[in-house]
């Protein structure tokens, strides 16, 4: 990796607003981040945090009713102003996506091999049928499907949930994309199968040197997979840092509380209570003027946090948190760990 290389993907001040019956609903507001080659960025958030909307904005898959502002650049090229045709050329070839629901994303009446070959053909039509078939088998092998020569002619329903998710991954890497976006790729899977699929993702990323953007609500998944982590709350970035910093030095109260609210397999069980964050995320049509988390925050200063938007503060040059109380949070964190 060269040092002065520009990032693969740059999201700059991205906002997505939907118009609803209840007025404009802000799904994403002022979101900025970068994704570099060979890097895995985990975007974590609860339902309604805007994490999936962000991935759809990058893929150009948002409905026309969504007002998208800001900038999304792939290798310096602006994506938001591209036509549908130009985007289609980019999608699948340079940027591709693994969806949560593999069964819905695969065509039930076409063999898996045909669907893989189609994915290859769309972007390189000069290959012969035999070459493409060989590529399909190779792809199935990469994602760890046993006896790919035989299974290549089977249909999606003949595969189990975990296997279908692998096929989705195979399709998404068919053209060696630079950026792979995985939106809750394991949410629908059982835990032992999830472990397999995460392994496959890890392996595939290493093999193809692509950048991986993984969107999930599960901090555990991020802990095992991501190099950097971006925490979203109610459409905004609340914290972004290297994975260790987010888990060991969380600086936004939301991140801190979220970690304290999670029951853990390895922590001390039973008698110690979980921290329960009061309240619920705000309605996207009635967002508070200040910090979105302020109404639920135990560090919030009335009159400040809840009044005006909170700027992002740098803790280190690779660690930002959108909070006015990072010093208090740090003090509390240190007290808790000592």
């Amino acid at each position: 990796m060269t040092l002065n290389q520009q990032p693969l993907l740059t999201v700059d001040n991205l906002s997505v607003v939907f118009s609803t019956d209840n007025g404009p609903a802000t799904s994403v507001e002022g979101l900025s981040f970068e994704l570099n080659a060979n890097e895995t960025l985990g975007v974590v958030g609860e339902s309604g945090s805007g994490k999936s909307i962000t991935s759809m904005a990058i893929m150009g898959l948002l409905p026309r009713t969504a007002a998208v502002t800001g900038s999304i650049r792939f290798r310096g090229e602006e994506l938001l102003t591209k036509t549908d045709d130009q985007l289609r050329d980019l999608r699948g070839r340079r940027i591709s996506m693994v969806f949560q629901d593999a069964l819905a994303a695969l065509n039930p009446v076409k063999s898996v091999g045909n669907q893989l070959m189609e994915a290859v053909r769309v972007h390189s039509s000069d290959r012969s049928r035999r070459e493409m078939r060989a590529r399909a088998i190779e792809l199935l092998d990469i994602v760890g499907i046993p006896t790919p020569e035989q299974r290549v002619d089977q249909f999606p329903h003949e595969f189990s949930g975990g296997m279908r998710q692998r096929i989705m991954i195979a399709m998404s890497i068919a053209n060696d994309p630079d950026v792979l976006i995985a939106d809750e790729p394991t949410t629908a899977l059982d835990v032992t199968v999830q472990a397999q699929v995460l392994d496959v993702l890890r392996r595939v990323q290493r093999r193809t040197n692509s950048a991986l953007l993984i969107i999930t609500h599960d901090l555990g998944v991020v802990a095992g997979l991501a190099d950097r982590v971006l925490v979203m709350y109610s459409g905004k970035k609340v914290e972004e840092a290297d994975v260790e910093d987010v888990f060991y030095r969380p600086s936004h109260p939301y991140t801190l509380d979220l970690l304290a609210a999670m029951p853990r397999l390895d922590g001390n069980s039973g008698d110690s209570r979980l921290y329960s964050i009061p309240g619920a995320p705000p309605d996207p049509t009635e967002l508070p003027p200040g910090c979105r988390f302020a109404p639920r925050c135990r560090y919030a200063m009335l009159g400040t946090c809840d009044r005006t938007p909170v700027p992002e503060q740098f803790i280190t040059d690779r660690h930002v948190a959108a909070c006015l109380r990072i010093d208090e949070v740090a003090a509390v964190r240190q007290e808790a760990s000592s």
């Binding site: 329960s276 009061p278 309240g279």
Partner: peptide, 12 residues
């Protein structure tokens, strides 16, 4: 804790 849970309900 009780007070907190009550606060948890003020969404609507």
């Amino acid at each position: 804790m009780r007070a907190q849970s009550v606060a948890a309900t003020t969404k609507t």
